[in-house]
Design a binder for these strands. Structure first.
Length: 436
RNA sequence: GCGUUCUUGGUGAAGCGGUUAACACACCUGACUGUGACUCAGGCAUGCAUGGGUUCGAUCCCCAUAGAGCGCCCCA
């Protein structure tokens, strides 16, 4: 038996329903935010990612799926979404539009050659947003509000928003030097990983889980203390805008993000739910004021974020939030000699907008009733030769178990009325709950 | 890339170096030629991730491979 490649997964059953539901919600959400959909290729010239993500990051140095195409061109399956969207922004000259900023969103699979574990796959889906052209703190705050709003719409409660600022290039550089100065005399106290980080990317030392409790770690300089006036002002404005939107956040000086390109605002949303694995960052992002210039030689600031679908689905499962509605409106039970009539009836109902299923297995009556229950049918239609003869239908309300004989012509009207009543009932119940 | 645990029908799982691989759920058939529960009687893994090895004999012991889980690195 050939099995799926390591680190990939199939979507089916209720998980499929959940994912479709989430996708619908995020489409509607992006429409309300007035963002435009952008789709870019799943593979790009390898060089694009080297320039965008950074030569020293693990993502580029050891996690990409690289291949030569038949024309001997170096290609890479995209490990993240930002680079491609920026390439598209520049290549299609979106910077020359008369409406600024250009606000975009994307959704699709990304590829990283990593050892799989909970919340981490080799092919995984990201939803993300990139806003080009505005250097205002308002844009940062709006971007942060998107995942927060999405989680809220989905009913996810156990989340925490963490923000930090790396400042502009000048602040970031000053901070980097201060960090090196701080850690250099204590290098031998740090773990092996940190020694390597010291050389490659000193900012990441702050993230270390091993050396977390060391004194030199606690005394380490903070990014915020090294912000120049302008950077400080930007960061404060971001916070004011967040407050204006009632978004609860915490400042985490240790968030530096793994990608090299960030400036000013960086943020993460983490899941704080019981039973979640160690990969608890649900989404992350920040501002990148020089990345577009790096890639496309156009000096346009940007800010964005990306969100992992698999982790979102896991978080929803942890909180036992069930988004898929599999209830069937009608289940039709045919008999040996009425199958054609049954299928015709099914067709009519479907055309009228009902969710309908029937038996394709030649099951007996008992098994059919069980099927109807399993499929969570609200009504069961019995269609035997007696009914066909008299142009009648036997319809049974599967909740109340009441059974009626109705004229075939009256079926749609009967169902419309029944569902209308049920809706009214639900609204009423909802109101009562709220009032209490 | 490193460490560690695991892999038995459709599902949850028990199991021991030895001849029938428990038990439960689900499913199928019948008692019951048009009403679901319950009950009863049957049926349902020639097989224990794959490939080797040890052994008279392996689901069980050993090795390799693949996959999954957890942790690290890193990241969403």
């Amino acid at each position: 038996m050939i099995q799926k490649p390591k680190g990939t997964y199939d979507v089916y059953g209720s998980e499929g329903q959940t994912i479709l539901y989430i996708e619908n919600v995020l489409r509607a959400l992006m429409d309300r935010y007035n963002y435009e959909y952008v789709r870019t290729p799943h593979f790009e010239a390898s060089e694009l990612f080297h320039r965008a993500v950074g030569e020293t990051t693990d993502i580029v140095t050891k996690e990409t799926y690289d291949f030569l195409d038949r024309g001997e061109r170096k290609m890479t399956l995209r490990p993240e979404g930002t680079a491609g969207v920026i390439r598209s922004f520049v290549e299609n000259k979106m910077y020359a539009r008369d409406v600024m900023p250009v606000k975009t969103w994307y959704y699709g699979p990304m590829y990283r050659y990593e050892r799989p574990q909970a919340g981490r796959f080799r092919e995984f889906y990201q939803f993300g947003v990139e806003v080009f052209g505005s250097k205002e703190a308002m844009a940062d705050a709006e971007v942060i509000s998107i995942p927060v709003t999405l989680y809220k719409l989905l009913g996810l409660k156990g989340i925490q928003v963490n923000i930090n600022s790396l400042g502009d290039t000048e602040s970031r550089e000053r901070y980097r030097e201060a960090l090196i100065k701080h850690f250099e005399p204590h290098l031998d106290e740090l773990c092996e990983d940190c020694k390597e980080r010291f050389v490659k990317n000193p900012l990441r030392i702050l993230d270390c889980k091993v050396d977390h409790d060391l004194d030199i770690m606690k005394q380490a300089p903070k990014t915020i203390d090294y912000l120049n006036e302008e950077s400080k002002k930007h960061f404060e404005e971001v916070q004011e805008y967040l407050k204006a939107m009632d978004i609860v956040y915490a400042i985490h000086p240790s968030i530096v993000r793994g990608l090299d390109y960030y400036t000013h605002t960086v943020f993460e949303v983490e899941a704080s739910v019981e039973g979640f694995g160690s990969q608890n960052v649900l989404c992350g992002g920040g501002r990148y004021n020089h990345l577009v210039k790096n890639i496309g030689n156009v000096d346009v600031p940007g800010v964005g974020f990306a969100l992992g679908m698999e982790r979102l689905v896991t978080a929803l499962a942890c909180e036992q939030i069930d988004l898929c509605s599999e209830a069937l409106d009608v289940y039709v039970i045919p008999f040996e000699d009425t199958k054609k009539e049954a299928l015709s009836l099914v067709q009519t109902l479907r055309l009228s907008g009902f969710k309908v299923d029937t038996d394709y297995m030649n099951k007996n009556m008992k098994a059919n009733f069980k099927q109807a229950d399993k499929k969570n049918a609200r009504f069961i239609l019995l269609l035997g030769s007696d009914e066909v003869k008299e142009n009648l239908l036997t319809i049974k309300n599967n909740h109340t178990k009441e059974e009626y004989k109705i004229q075939k012509e009256d079926l749609i009207a009967f169902l419309d009325e029944a569902f209308l009543e049920e809706c009214a009932c639900k609204e009423c119940g909802g109101n009562h709950e709220e009032m209490e």
